[in-house]
Structures are given as C-alpha cells and as structure tokens.
Design a protein around this nucleic acid. Structure first.
Lengths: 335, 335
DNA sequence: GAACTCGATCGAAACGATTTTCTCCGGTTA
DNA sequence: TAACCGGAGAAAATCGTTTCGATCGAGTTC
C-alpha cells in the first residue's frame, strides 16, 4: 500500500534519497541509510515494479515462448534458462504457443507491450514469425531463437546438430547389425525431422534398406500408429530397427510393438531422440540421442544477456551443439 | 519507439483522445477515430504495458507458482489456467519453485513487486508460505491455492479429494481379487500422499494385508527402488498389487518389475495416480486415478477472477473435485 | 436571443519510481 | 580571507499512460 513517498516522509528525507538507499546505498550517509531502512521495514514497503520498468524502459523479465510445454524436453531447456536468468537477477516468464501460430502471434504482441528484457522463442514456423520478431528487435528487444536453426544468419540462435544426431543413430544401428531401418516422424517441413532423417540416410550403405513412416506430428499417439504399421508387416518386410524422430514417438512405438507380442530389442530395436527422462523410465529403457538440454537453454539465455547489455557491440551468431548417443536396452545387441 | 504523444501529434489531437480511441472508441467521433487509428498504424505504435500497469495499480498478468514443472500433471493444470485467462484477456506467467522453499520465497517477493492481477500457487509446504501469501493478500493481490487443500478455511483453494482417490484405488484392487496390497509413496508429511494412503487403508477389510513402501520423493527413480523391493520379496511375502502415490512412481515400479521378469498385471498389478499421458503410453498401459487436471486449473483461475473483480463481495471457498479411476492393462483381471 | 444540453475534445493531474541537476555547508588550500 | 572542493540531500524532470474536470461549439427550447 505504501509508496516511496511515505517512506521518505517517515524517514524525514526526500524520495530521491530513499531511492538511493535502495539502489546505490554507498552514496548515502550511514545514519540516514539506517533511518530509511528502518522506515522501509516499519511500513513493509515493497518497490513497485511497473514504475521501475516504466522509468527504465524495459522490465527485468525474460519472455520465453515455448513450442510445446507438454514435451518434457522443453522443461529441461527452461531449467537452463532459469539458472542463467537467476544469476543475472532476471525473472523468466514462460508462455506456451502450443504449436499454434495464431496463439504465438498473440503472445508476441503481448510481449511487445510488456517490453521485456528479451525474448527466447522456438517459433512455430520459420517464415510467419519473422516479421513479428523483427518488430521486437526494432523496438530494441533482443531475440534469441532456440531449438530451431532455420533462421540462419538472421539473428542469434541456439540449436543442436540434427543431421549429426541422425547420423549417430544410423551408425549405431548399423553397428548393431541392422540393415533394414525405419524412420518414424514428421512432418518433414519441420527442420528437425527433415535433418534427423537426412542424417540417418547418410549413414546407411548401398544395399541397406530405409523405410519411412511419415507421421503428422510427434506424439505418443502418432507413435502408436507407427508401431502398429511396423507390427503389421510380414517378417520379411519388417524393419529390424525403428529410429524415431523423438522420444514420444518412440514410446508409442514401443507400446504398440509390445502389445503385438514383438520383443524389443530382439525382434525390433527402437531408438529415440531427445533422451527425455521418460525414455529411461520405459519398461524397456530406450536408447536415445541426447541433446544438451539444459545447456541449450543456458546458452540461449546468456546470448540474450550479451545482446541486451552490449547492443552496439554485439554480433549475432548461431551456436550449434553436438548431440550424443545414450545406449540402453532398446537397442541392445540381439542375443 | 514512439509513444502516445507522437501519435497524438501526428493525428492532431490530444493524448487523452488517443487513449480514448484505444480504450473506449465509442466516445470518439468516427472521423477523429479513423485519423488516430491511421496515425497508430503509420507509427507502428504499441502501448506501453508498464505505464498502463502503473496507472492501473496492477498488471494484467496472473502469476502461477508451480511446484514441479517436470510433472506433466502440472502442465495440464496450466492449460486450464491459460484457457480461463485468455477469455478474460489476461496473461499467465509461470514460474517454477521446484519444491524449493527458498526459491518459492524469492518468487513470491518478485510477485510482490510486480503487482500481478493475482497469484495461483501450490505451496512447497503448508506453514512457511502463509506469512508471505498473507502479505500478498494484504496488498490486495488475490491468491488461490491449487492442488493442496491444507490451508483449510484460510483462503480460496482448489484441490481433488485424495482420500476418495485412495479409496477408489483400494476398492478397485480388492474387486480384482487382491488381498495383499502395497502402497508406494512418500513423504507422508505431504498431504496428498498421506490422504491417498489413508483412503486405501480405509477400503481394505480385516484380514487383508497392507504393506507400506515409504519413499523420500515421488519420482521415477524412487519408484524404481520401490519396484526393486517388491521384486526382491519371496512369492509369499510379495504383494499382488502396488498402488503408487503418483504415476511417476508407478512407471518406475513397472520398469523394475519388468526387468526382474515379473509380469504385469499377472504377477503384480500396478495402479498409479494422476493419469498423466505417459501412464497410458507405458509398455503396459497403467491404470490410474484421474484428477480433472484442466478443470482444476480452470476453476482456480475463475476463482481468482472472481476474487479480483469483487474484492468486497467475495467469500473464500474451497472446491474439492472428485477423482475417478481409469482402468487399463496394468490392473486387468488376471488370466 | 438567452439559457441549456450534449457530444467531442482538451489539458492537467495523477500513478511511483529513477536520475540528473542544484543547493548547502563544513573543511582545505593558497 | 577568498576561492574552491566534495559529500549529502533536496528538488525537479522524466518515463507513458489513464482519467477527470473544464471547455467549446452546435443545436434545442422557451
């Protein structure tokens, strides 16, 4: 209820002095400082964020537009963001576009009004949001795109090398003796999906067989349909391994194969992507391509800080992380 | 970059008129309105949120302090909150206490400064936060506690009936013929855990056997240790069903039992709690007690709105939802 | 045609901080 | 003793809105 004015009155000083006590205490004589602090305590005074932000021109909040909060992958990225934000004394405001472009647009409009410290975003699609992001940047709000490197060269971005991830998957499965591999994922307009597939294909050898099971989306539900397709194939046509575009799909495939009495990995091996915690927790623990999730978020936040603090001196850049393979039971060597 | 002043100048009107065009267009003559709107478009003017909030005394953002974002349960609750917020033209700012009381305290301090529209919170513990929440309320910021009914009678709260959930679990397992049931969960200082256990115990009959497997936490990892314990028991001492305090634990138990060659549900049935999507996605789809997750969040947000809009007229109340049972393979009738 | 209405607009006072400039005063220095 | 310095606070400008009287014509009414 009480504002800085009342604190000033109670302490018998001007509001400017109270502000100094709060923000640059070394400028204030000790006796005065103590008097002000006592007044603050007595009134239970708390600074008004809106007023501060108005004066400062921007708030101390980083806005994060997540693509899909129900993918645990994102939660871990957020953890990294929060860690970086905390050391810089910034807040993190998470909002969820749920892969909905209209919703994303609304959220970005909201951020335009709120003048946040910066915005981290995984855009729904590569083109549509460019204009809107450009408007943010024009307003002096730094933007870093994470987990989506399609805006090459246009601004700061952090992502993982999905082609490499796909290649690692392919090499691993081949090394395990698989010569007929299926790729389950989609839509291929999503960069990640396309690149993971591309990496897999590149790791295969003439004579190998690659079956693509296109999916409209990367969820457990679509994974189940993929699993059903695989289970329905004759033994000769059935791939001996399925590489899934993410772990949610892999869980769906695993469930359906199990339900049809196929053994994992003996009949069909499964390899996922992202290494979410639930992958390790599956009944047959899933092998998966791991991305440095927390680090991804952490780095994105640091780049944002840099851009915000040295707006003139700053040069945009793209950081690409290397994924690696986590081997578990679902791709164990057949007995 | 441009403020309302520049819009006013360009349109040849006063700032007050511009504000009216933006907020109460019906007060402004059409010709003027069009002129102002043209100026807004030409300058790319966007309102400054901080200034609006300063004037209004509070922002249009609902703060949500989640206990643990890595539990998918929470994400679904958030979906409900967002839906309600959207229709009221409010933003949702999600932060994560990660079950850390100190962190929670910091976040609440932050919210005290930001003067949000209201705060939704699942407190880390029932006592510590009462003072801080009280301070928010004293500042006129409405608070609704969700998914934790321990603050009985002290303010608005939304939760599910966990005793009933436990009872449903017990009745279901007994009906399936189980007479030796284990309860895996903890710590018992957490209301939910205690009440679910209590409900289970109440549903059992003299002569039945109830084994408690205490856990320090409700995660997949601790679930695995529970599963290991169960698997290590002799056939005579082994419960025929395990009721888990949440689905994460259940997944861990399932994994470990499978690893030890025990069949679910034939050797041991498993029943989880929360019905997160991953429960249905498990290799053996898990039966689970379902709480109306989205509705829980939706209701909490609506109560917040009510409290915010009729501060005088409002009466605190506690809403308790009824859980129900979702039957899947993990508790199917033994063959 | 004087008094009144009424709709449309203006101008100024908040809202609560931060920051810059100005004033004051005791103490140094030449 | 005059000029200067520097520390400590006060005072005022400022950030961008909203909102509330005041104002000002153009019609109405008697």
């Amino acid at each position: 209820m009480s504002s800085i004015k009342e604190v000033a009155r109670l302490a018998g000083v001007s509001v400017g002095t109270v502000s100094n006590v709060l923000n640059r205490p070394e400028l204030v004589a000790q006796e005065t400082r103590l008097r002000v602090q006592a007044a603050v305590a007595q009134l239970g005074y708390v600074r008004n964020g809106s007023a501060r932000h108005l004066r400062a021109g921007r708030s101390r909040t980083i806005g994060v537009v997540a693509l899909d909060l129900s993918n645990p992958f994102v939660i871990d990225v957020l953890r990294g963001v929060e860690a970086a934000a905390e050391t810089a004394d910034l807040n993190v405001m998470v909002v969820n576009s749920s892969k909905d472009a209209a919703r994303e647009a609304r959220l970005l409009e909201m951020f335009e009004e709120e003048r946040p410290f910066g915005v981290l975003i995984t855009p729904v699609n590569a083109e549509g949001q460019d204009r809107r992001l450009g408007r943010l940047v024009a307003r002096g709000i730094p933007v870093v795109v994470f987990d989506n490197s399609s805006r090459q060269g246009r601004g700061c971005a952090v992502a993982a090398d999905d082609v490499l991830g796909g290649r690692l998957a392919g090499l691993h499965l081949r090394e395990r003796g698989h010569r007929h591999i299926a790729f389950a994922g989609g839509p291929f307009t999503v960069r990640q999906v396309e690149e993971r597939h591309q990496g897999l294909a590149g790791a295969m050898t003439p004579g190998d067989r690659l079956t693509v099971i296109p999916l409209p989306d990367l969820t457990v539900a679509t994974g189940r349909t993929a699993g059903e397709q695989v289970a329905g194939l004759s033994r000769a046509d059935r791939p001996t391994a399925v590489f899934c575009a993410n772990d949610l799909v892999a869980l769906g495939v695993l469930q359906e194969l199990t339900r049809h009495g196929l053994r994992v990995p003996d009949d069909v091996a499964i390899l996922g992507y992202d290494d979410i915690d639930f992958a390790a927790a599956a009944a047959v623990p899933l092998s998966s391509i791991r991305q440095p999730r927390e680090q991804l978020g952490h780095t994105a936040a640091l780049m944002l800080l840099e851009e915000a603090n040295q707006p003139d001196f700053h040069e945009h850049r793209q950081v690409i992380f290397q994924p690696d393979l986590v081997e578990r039971a679902s791709t164990a060597r057949a007995r």
